[in-house]
Lab assay of single mutants.
Amino acid sequence: EPLWIRPDAPSRCTWQLGRPASESPHHHTAPAKSPKILPDILKKIGDTPMVRINKIGKKFGLKCELLAKCEFFNAGGSVKDRISLRMIEDAERDGTLKPGDTIIEPTSGNTGIGLALAAAVRGYRCIIVMPEKMSSEKVDVLRALGAEIVRTPTNARFDSPESHVGVAWRLKNEIPNSHILDQYRNASNPLAHYDTTADEILQQCDGKLDMLVASVGTGGTITGIARKLKEKCPGCRIIGVDPEGSILAEPEELNQTEQTTYEVEGIGYDFIPTVLDRTVVDKWFKSNDEEAFTFARMLIAQEGLLCGGSAGSTVAVAVKAAQELQEGQRCVVILPDSVRNYMTKFLSDRWMLQKGFLKEEDLTEKKPWWWHLRVQELGLSAPLTVLPTITCGHTIEILREKGFDQAPVVDEAGVILGMVTLGNMLSSLLAGKVQPSDQVGKVIYKQFKQIRLTDTLGRLSHILEMDHFALVVHEQIQYHSTGKSSQRQMVFGVVTAIDLLNFVAAQERDQK
C-alpha cells in the first residue's frame, strides 16, 4: 500500500453525458421521505430548503428570480454533511469501515464536522487534520463531537509532509485500522450531490432553472449537481466560483495573481482535486475576500440567511453572472454553511477592521482624538531585521541585547519573508524542534498583521487588541530589464502597544 495517494490523481470516472444510468458502476440512493420521529440526527441530513432572495437581486438590477439552496440546514450545519454520511455509508457497505475503526480526514473543517457527527452516532474514533487558518468555532464544535484535532501550517503546499493532507496520511500509516475516506478522491463525494442535492433542486424548481452558481473546494458539490442538471435540464448554465489565490478556475489566465492566501474558508485549493470535473462548468468567476464577507453580511442583514463567507462569494458572483438572465428565468445559488463557524471572524466588526474589510468610518461609535491620525505620526525608528541564514542562537542574543521581542526576517534585497519572535524561538528550542545552530528560517511564521503608514491609529489599535505587534510595510514598484514591473513589500518598522501608548501619553502631556 502506498504511503500516500495524491489528492489530485487523474480521475478514473467514466461518467458521460447521455450515458444510461443503468451502466453506472456505483451504488445510487434515492431521496427517502422522513418519518415524523427521526431514529437519529443523521436522518436530518439532506432535504434542505430552497429560499427566495428578495432584496439583493433587485438591489443589483437582476431581472431573474434568485433562489438560495440553504445547505446550513443540514444536521452539522453545512453541505459537507451529505458527503460525510455518504462516504461512511459506502465504506461500511463495501466492508472497508468496521466497528471500532478510526476515521482520519484532512479538511478545512466542515467535512470534519460532518464526519465527527456521523462518527459520534456510529461509534468510530475520528481524527481531523486541518490548517491553522480555520476558525476556532470549527475546532470547538469538533472537540465537542469527540474528534481529535491536529493543526497544520496554512501556507504548507498540499504535497508537503507538513500539509493537512501529508499529516493525515502519516497518521494513517501509524494508526492500525485507520482510514482516510479522502473527500478529494472519493466518488461518494460527487455521488452524494448527484443522487440527492441535484434531485432536490430539480424537484423544488419543478425542473425549471436557467443558471446554477456554486463555490468550489473539493469540487464534489458542483460536479455532482452539474452532471445531473446537464442530464435533466441541459439549458442550465453552470457557474463556478473560485477565490483569488486558488488555481481551480479555467482558463488558467484567471488564476494569475501574486496573491497566495485568502481568508474565506472551505473553497479554493492549490491543486485540482480528483473529484472535480471542470468540463461540466460553463464559466468560472474569481471572487475576493472583501466581496465575500460584504455579501455574507448582506445576506444575514437583508435576507435573514445566517450563512458563512463562501455563501457571500457565491452570491457576489451570482449578481454578476445572472445579469444575462431575463424576467421569468431563474438562478439558484448554493449557500454551503452557517455563520456559526465564523462568529469571531467576519461577523465581528473588530475582525473586519483588522483585516481591512471594514473602515473605521463605517462604525458610528465615538472615537478618541488620536483615532484618525496616521501611523506615520508615530515617528517610528528604523527596524531591526535579520536574514533567514542567521542562526536561532545568534538571533536570540541580538533580540535580548537590543531589547526586542520580535524581528522581521528579510532577504538580501529587503523583501519581507516573515517574522521571528523570542517566545516562538525559545519554545521551539525547548520542544526540540530546532537547535541553536539551525537557521532562523526554520522558525519563520507568517501569521502576523501588516499595516501601512497611511493607515489610521484606530486601525492599529484594533490590531493591537488581539496581537502583540504589527509590521509596518510599504510597497515598492521595481522595474526589470524586460520592461515588466513587480510590486514588493518592504519593512518600514515594527509597532507595539507600548509605542502607541507612549505616543498618546506624550501628545497629551505636551497639550497640557
Rank of each mutant, 00 (worst) to 15 (best):
I239R: 05
I239T: 08
G240L: 07
V241F: 02
P243H: 07
E244G: 15
G245D: 02
G245M: 02
G245V: 02
E250N: 07
P251H: 07
E252I: 02
E252W: 09
E253Q: 13
L254G: 02
Q256W: 11
Q259F: 15
T261C: 09
T261Y: 15
V264K: 02
I267K: 06
Y269H: 08
Y269E: 08
D270Y: 04
F271M: 06
F271L: 05
P273Q: 12
R278I: 02
R278P: 05
W284R: 02
F285V: 15
K286V: 04
S287H: 08
N288T: 05
N288V: 07
D289I: 02
E290G: 14
A292T: 15
T294P: 06
T294N: 05
F295A: 02
F295I: 08
A296L: 04
L299I: 15
I300A: 02
E303W: 05
G304P: 02
G304C: 02
L306A: 02
C307R: 05
C307P: 07
G308V: 02
G308M: 04
G308P: 04
G308K: 02
G308E: 02
G309D: 04
T314I: 09
A316T: 08
V319F: 12
A321H: 13
A321W: 02
A321L: 10
A322N: 07
Q323N: 05
Q323F: 13
Q323P: 02
G328C: 15
R330N: 07
S338E: 09
N341R: 02
T344I: 02
T344N: 02
T344V: 02
T344Y: 05
K345C: 05
F346D: 06
R350C: 07
W351L: 02
M352K: 08
L353P: 02
Q354F: 08
Q354A: 02
G356R: 06
G356C: 05
F357I: 05
E361R: 13
L363G: 10
L363A: 02
L363R: 10
T364L: 09
E365P: 15
E365L: 09
K366E: 11
K366S: 10
K366I: 15
P368R: 15
H372Q: 14
Q376D: 07
E377T: 07
L378H: 08
L378R: 02
L380S: 11
S381N: 07
P383M: 14
P383G: 02
P383D: 06
L384P: 02
T385A: 14
L387R: 12
T389A: 02
C392I: 13
G393L: 12
H394R: 06
H394A: 02
I396H: 12
G403D: 13
F404W: 13
A407W: 05
V409L: 05
V410Y: 14
V410T: 12
V410L: 11
D411R: 11
D411F: 09
D411L: 09
G414C: 11
V415C: 13
I416S: 11
I416Y: 11
L417R: 11
L417E: 08
G418C: 09
L422T: 07
L422R: 11
L426H: 13
S427V: 07
S428D: 15
S428I: 14
S428P: 14
L429H: 15
G432S: 05
K433M: 12
Q435R: 10
S437A: 13
V440Q: 02
V440R: 02
K442M: 13
Y445M: 05
F448D: 02
K449I: 07
K449T: 02
I451A: 07
R452M: 14
T454A: 04
T456F: 12
T456A: 13
S461I: 02
S461R: 06
S461P: 14
E465K: 15
H468M: 15
F469C: 12
L471H: 02
V472S: 10
V473Q: 08
V473G: 11
H474A: 06
E475C: 14
E475T: 02
Q478G: 13
Q478F: 14
H480Y: 11
H480W: 07
H480P: 09
S481N: 11
S481R: 14
T482F: 12
K484S: 14
K484M: 14
S486Y: 11
S486V: 09
Q487F: 13
Q489M: 13
V491F: 14
G493V: 11
G493R: 08
T496Y: 02
A497P: 02
I498W: 10
I498P: 10
F503I: 02
Q507G: 08
D510L: 10
D510F: 12
